[in-house]
Amino acid sequence: MANARSVVVDALAAASDGAIAEDVLDGLRAGGDIALDTLNLTSLKRFEIIMRIEEVFAIEVDDDEVMEQESIASLIAMVEAKRQSA
């Protein structure tokens, strides 16, 4: 089964269209964290990330739930909690 961190970071990388530096993405893949608001994600980009997470894990994620998350780590924790309760 897919790892929540790798799916979230890969979805973020795909949605950012290269706007996030590869070294930042590598750091996130290695366990680092970053505040989501520093990424300046548009609502369309957030939607793309949510769709990828839902597709991979067969869970439903509400946009409001994503907006409540302050960091990549908290987003990953939310995804993992949803996976456990699914």
Rank of each mutant, 00 (worst) to 15 (best):
L39R: 09
R5N: 11
N3I: 04
A14Q: 14
E60P: 00
V7K: 07
Q69K: 14
Q69G: 02
N40T: 10
I34N: 00
D63Q: 09
S71H: 08
A58D: 13
R83V: 14
S74I: 06
E68H: 13
D10T: 12
Q84F: 02
A86C: 04
A81E: 15
D26E: 15
D17Y: 09
R52S: 15
Q84K: 14
L25D: 03
I76S: 05
S16A: 15
V7A: 04
R52M: 12
R5Y: 11
F47N: 03
E54G: 05
S74L: 07
S71A: 10
A13L: 01
R52Q: 14
I49T: 01
I34C: 05
I53M: 06
N3K: 12
A58R: 14
G31Y: 07
A14D: 14
K45A: 15
E55C: 01
G32Y: 09
I50M: 07
V9I: 15
M67E: 12
V56C: 06
V61F: 03
A2N: 13
A4V: 12
I76H: 04
L39Y: 04
R29I: 06
M51E: 11
L36Q: 04
V66K: 09
E55G: 09
I76N: 00
G18M: 08
L75V: 04
R52A: 15
L25R: 10
T42C: 05
Q69R: 15
E54T: 09
D64E: 14
N3R: 11
M1P: 14
D63N: 08
M67T: 10
V56R: 13
V24Q: 10
I20Y: 11
G18Y: 09
A35T: 02
A73V: 08
S43M: 08
L44I: 13
K82E: 08
V24F: 03
S74C: 04
A2P: 15
E65Q: 14
R5H: 12
G27S: 08
S16I: 06
E65I: 02
S43T: 14
A19R: 15
S74K: 12
D33E: 00
D63V: 11
V79S: 02
A15L: 03
I20N: 07
D10S: 14
I20P: 11
A58S: 14
R5M: 11
A30F: 05
V61P: 02
M67K: 13
A77N: 09
A13P: 02
I53S: 01
L28C: 07
I53N: 02
D26S: 13
L41W: 06
A14K: 15
V7W: 10
